[in-house]
């Protein structure tokens, strides 16, 4: 018997911005060790959902609740990675990777940071400043920083959208490999990315959250897998009917 995945975090409610509805009541559950991809038109509130989960400022009036399965606060379980790598330009890559511990006043785990940098392929770049790295390398460093946080829930806000196609697909493979057993919410504009990475695909509109069919197979799915390509096409078609 296959056990139904249990949610680890859930957001239910609606949001208004300056008196206008941003999104109607919805229910979004993040399931344990699964990738949930959230798609939708620009300005529909995808990033707002992500920021609400992260406990960040949103400038919207949210009515509802955000909860974790164990009833404890969600914020300490979350790591966040944005479209911009947010690497501190004055600090080297190693210091950027360890910034979380520094900000919490904890002991720095140098050995672990070096190990993670090795896993993302930046071991020999650890003493460089972010400006000395390429876009792809910078996102790898940001991923290393996210891994260093060692949190259960990872929120990804279009982290690979600024990268070229080749680097993007490599980063997707790396992210799936390194974020194994993590619960991931990925906000993306890219149907191909969703088709490759998602266990659950949700398309968000002002009125609802629509689950979409997901191709079979383990993630990351092959870029040329017919079922993945079919799912990508279907998703794109659906997104086009919305506009």
């Amino acid at each position: 018997m296959i056990e139904a995945p249990t949610f680890i975090a859930r957001l239910s409610g609606s949001a208004e911005m300056q008196g206008e509805i941003l999104f109607s009541p919805l229910n979004l559950e993040l399931c344990q060790a699964q990738w949930t991809c959230l798609l939708g038109a620009s300005g529909v509130g995808k990033s707002t959902i992500l920021r609400l989960f992260a406990g960040l400022e949103t400038h919207v009036n949210f009515k509802g609740k955000i909860e974790s399965n164990d009833g404890l606060a969600l914020a300490p379980k979350i790591a966040y990675m944005a479209q911009s790598d947010l690497l501190l330009p004055w600090a080297n890559i190693l210091d950027n990777v360890m910034i979380g511990a520094k900000l919490r006043g904890q002991q720095l785990e140098l050995e672990r940071a070096n190990e993670i940098l090795e896993r993302v392929g930046l071991a020999d770049q650890s003493h460089k400043k972010p400006t000395q790295l390429s876009g792809g390398q910078r996102q790898r460093a940001a991923l290393a920083r996210t891994l260093m946080e060692d949190k259960d829930i990872i929120l990804l806000d279009e982290p690979f959208s600024a990268l070229d196609a080749k680097t993007r697909s490599e980063m997707q493979d790396l992210a799936v490999d390194l974020l194994k057993n993590k619960t991931v919410l990925l906000v993306t504009h890219d149907p191909a990315e969703a088709a490759r990475l998602a266990h659950t695909i949700l398309v968000m509109t002002r009125d609802n959250l629509t689950p979409m069919p997901v191709p079979d197979g383990a993630i990351p799915r092959f870029v040329d897998d017919p079922k993945t390509l079919q799912a990508q096409g279907h998703l794109l078609k659906y997104l086009r009917t919305m506009s």
């Binding site: 920021r51 992260a54 406990g55 960040l56 400022e57 914020a75 300490p76 979350i78 790591a79 966040y80 944005a82 911009s84 947010l86 501190l88 910034i99 979380g100 520094k102 900000l103 919490r104 006043g105 946080e149 929120l155």
Partner: peptide, 19 residues
């Protein structure tokens, strides 16, 4: 973006100021 990142990292006000 830096301040958001620091918040998700549970940073204290003084640590955000310093780092």
């Amino acid at each position: 973006g830096y301040l958001d990142l620091a918040k998700t990292m549970q940073a204290s006000k003084s640590a955000v100021m310093r780092h």
